[in-house]
Design a protein around this nucleic acid. Structure first.
Lengths: 127, 127
DNA sequence: TGGAACCTTCACATCAGTGTGAAGGCAAGC
DNA sequence: GCTTGCCTTCACACTGATGTGAAGGTTCCA
């Protein structure tokens, strides 16, 4: 598929898909006329990148951990490519991601606790 | 305490503390000489703001939900101030925060699953 | 054949968060 | 006193992510 369709299917502006490519996050092939050609897996990939960026990760970090994140089932990288340094990076990043999660969860809970306290019945009725 | 001490205690640069104030996130009092004077609760508050910014929330959003987030125990806002619109905003934000959490958790799991698969023993030994 | 809708690259602009430095006032110790 | 360090405001600059527009090539359909 071309960039327009991927944009429509993911909700990610075409401009951003080009930017992600520029940053080394997506590597679409090219048709003979120069058009970008995306395959099916790029749909999830683009959304994943979007989510991580929204969560405060930088393109630089995403680029480094993305190779290890190929979907729920698959480990697509030869373990021999994993240097001790890279492993340390990944453990550190997992930890920092965890800290973000904890921070967000605390604040989500605070919001929900407030709402539950103010509108005791609403929580059940609106869900 | 003054801005320097708060900065040292929180790890947040003084420049940023001034910026958060400019954005309406912190409201320190002023000494007679014009110096900012922070109280004890601002320590946690500054760290909370930092964490939320790092997690991709904007100062504008933080400013709007912060009044409802006054610590684990306390609801410091009169429920009569909660309009239906504000309540909807908060529910929406709680949901978007949840989406961020889910995204981060998925990727954290992917990282850890990869590491566990590559170094089956390391996970237990390094923790 | 022509127009509509898509694609390309290039470039400039905006926004939030952050860094940094200048110029000057205040406070505490030698 | 003077120096040192902290504080103030103001301002300019950078970075990363994003918006937007220009100028031009491609695809497709009527």
């Amino acid at each position: 598929m071309r960039i327009g369709e991927l944009s429509r299917r993911t909700g990610v502006p075409a401009r951003m898909l080009r930017y992600y490519e520029e940053q080394g996050l997506l590597r679409p092939e090219r048709a003979e006329n120069g058009y970008r050609v995306y395959r099916e897996p790029e749909v999830g990939r683009a959304q994943q990148i979007r989510g991580l960026l929204d969560s405060g990760l930088t393109t630089e970090l995403i680029r480094r951990i993305l190779p290890f994140l190929d979907g729920p089932q698959g480990i697509h990288l030869d373990p021999r490519c994993l240097t001790a340094e890279t492993e340390a990076l990944m453990r550190g990043e997992a930890e920092r991601i965890q800290q973000r999660i904890d921070c967000l969860a605390r604040n989500r809970d605070a919001i929900l606790a407030y709402l539950a306290a103010v509108r005791p019945a609403a929580d059940a009725s609106t869900r």
